[in-house]
Computed example of a mutant assay.
Amino acid sequence: MDLATLIGIVLSFGLVAAAIVTGGSPLIFVNIPSVLIVVGGTIGATMVNYPLSHILGVMGVIKKTFFAGMESPAEIIEKFMDYANRARREGILSLEPLIKEIDDHFLKKGLQLTVDGLEPQTIQEILETEISYLEDRHSIGAEICSTLGAFAPAMGMIGTVIGLVQMLQTMSDPSTIGPAMAVALLTTFYGAVLANLVFNPMAGKLKTRSKEEVLLKEMVMHGILSISKGENPRIIEEKLNSFLPPRDRRQEG
């Protein structure tokens, strides 16, 4: 679980809820018509904007805002130092038994291509294509979250207009003014909360996660290419360390 995401959600919603409770009954902020307008309208407009397959697929991408399942750069460098030393001592084919134990599809594919004897340039082209399509998939997920964040306040404004029209139509009956005004104000509130506490922060986190994952994939690709070229393990370590800030670089032991 990503602690920053969890703490951020608890903190933001907790403070909003605390402000509501201290100001009176929280039930006055519950309005079913407002929920239907904002939630239903936002989801519906987004479904019009994107193919259904993209909408359904985004759920898997959104999980990355809560779960950080990526290896650390230090672990990747450690792996490649082991692969490089093994390949240097016993030959490139000695890596083949290790491929079955690897869970990372990208690393597994790259090492398999290397063991199969493909030219480094061909391996690079294949892996760069993989990275490119990975970025495309992630960008779609972040884009959908941003779209949800844009539609939610817009639907809130639509609800506000609906509530104001209802209120103006029934000004002669004071008992109807309160419910109509509640719809007018609460839809704006719901839209603002969803956009600024949920959808837009998720879009930002997905963009950050995508950059981090692409960086790790590029590290893996350069490590694989270096092994396929038969480079010295020390040179490989220096190449992979160059992806990291100085304080995080693996020190020679």
Rank of each mutant, 00 (worst) to 15 (best):
L3C: 09
L6S: 15
G14V: 01
V16D: 04
A19K: 11
V21F: 15
G24N: 04
N31F: 04
N31C: 01
P33V: 05
P33C: 01
V38Y: 00
G40H: 12
G41D: 07
T42F: 09
I43D: 11
I55N: 06
G60T: 00
I62H: 06
K64T: 01
F66D: 02
F67G: 02
G69H: 03
E71G: 07
A74I: 11
A87Q: 03
R88V: 02
R89W: 12
R89K: 15
R89A: 07
G91R: 12
E101H: 10
D103K: 13
H105Q: 14
G117K: 09
P120M: 02
Q121A: 07
L127G: 03
L134S: 14
D136N: 08
H138Y: 13
S139M: 11
S139F: 09
I140R: 13
I140S: 06
A142V: 08
A152W: 12
G156V: 00
G156Y: 05
T160W: 02
L164G: 14
V165M: 11
L168C: 12
I177E: 09
A180F: 11
A182F: 05
F189A: 07
G191T: 03
A192N: 06
L194V: 09
L197G: 10
V198K: 06
N200V: 12
T208H: 05
T208G: 13
S210H: 12
E212M: 06
L215A: 08
K217A: 11
M219D: 05
V220C: 09
N232E: 09
E237Y: 01
E238V: 01
K239M: 02
